[in-house]
Simulated assay, not measured.
Amino acid sequence: MPKNNTYRMLVLLEDDTKINKEDEKFLKGKPGKMHEFVDELILPFDVDELDELNVWFDKFDAEICIPNEGHIKYEISSDGLIVLMLDKEIEGVVEKVKKFVEENN
């Protein structure tokens, strides 16, 4: 079981969606985003290991993010939560992310 201060990555798929009729009156038919939870991955360092986090994410960016630029984004919080969002159209990249985390653990 992971410690409470270990970084965790929530993997979400993001899909453009049309707003339904009920919400249309509030949002005036503007397109929105729908997010589907895929997985939670435990990363190999704690929240106080910022140097390790930076090195790990440099490699993650080079291998995963840069080849998928424009279709992938992430947010890192100071409490150890990372939210990774992939466009639904590159759903296959989820397996690459899981493999990367496993191999770089």
Rank of each mutant, 00 (worst) to 15 (best):
T17L: 00
L10Q: 14
P44C: 04
I66Q: 10
D58G: 11
K33W: 12
F45A: 07
T17H: 05
D15S: 12
L10S: 07
K21H: 08
V55E: 13
I72H: 06
I42G: 00
D15P: 02
V47Q: 02
E22F: 00
E36G: 06
K73W: 15
D61P: 09
K59P: 02
F26R: 08
F37W: 12
D15A: 13
H71K: 10
K28R: 07
L12V: 09
K18F: 00
E63V: 10
W56K: 03
I66M: 11
K28D: 09
K33P: 03
E52A: 04
F26V: 06
E24C: 02
F26Y: 15
K30P: 09
N68Y: 05
I42H: 12
M34T: 08
P67D: 10
D48I: 13
D46P: 08
D16W: 08
D48Y: 13
E52Q: 02
D48V: 12
I42W: 10
D39C: 03
I72S: 04
L10E: 11
I42Y: 14
F57W: 04
D51M: 09
L12R: 15
V47N: 02
A62Y: 09
M9T: 05
W56F: 12
M34A: 08
A62G: 07
K18C: 12
K25H: 14
D15K: 13
T17R: 08
K28C: 04
G32R: 06
V38Y: 01
L13E: 07
I19T: 08
E36N: 00
V47D: 01
F37A: 14
D48N: 12
L50G: 00
D23E: 12
L43E: 00
D51V: 12
W56I: 03
E22W: 00
I64T: 02
L10P: 01
H71T: 10
L13C: 04
E69S: 15
A62H: 09
I64C: 04
D23F: 11
M9E: 03
K18W: 00
L43Y: 00
P44Y: 01
L41R: 01
V47P: 01
D16E: 10
E14K: 12
F60A: 01
L50P: 05
E49K: 15
E14F: 01
K25G: 03
E22C: 06
D46T: 11
I66H: 14
V38A: 03
V55N: 09
E63I: 07
L41A: 05
M34I: 05
G29F: 01
K59R: 08
H71P: 02
L53Q: 08
V38W: 03
L53Y: 09
E69L: 13
L13N: 05
F57R: 05
L41I: 02
D15G: 06
D23C: 13
E40R: 10
G70S: 09
K33S: 04
I64M: 05
F37H: 10
E52M: 06
V55G: 01
L12Q: 14
L27G: 09
L43V: 03
I19H: 00
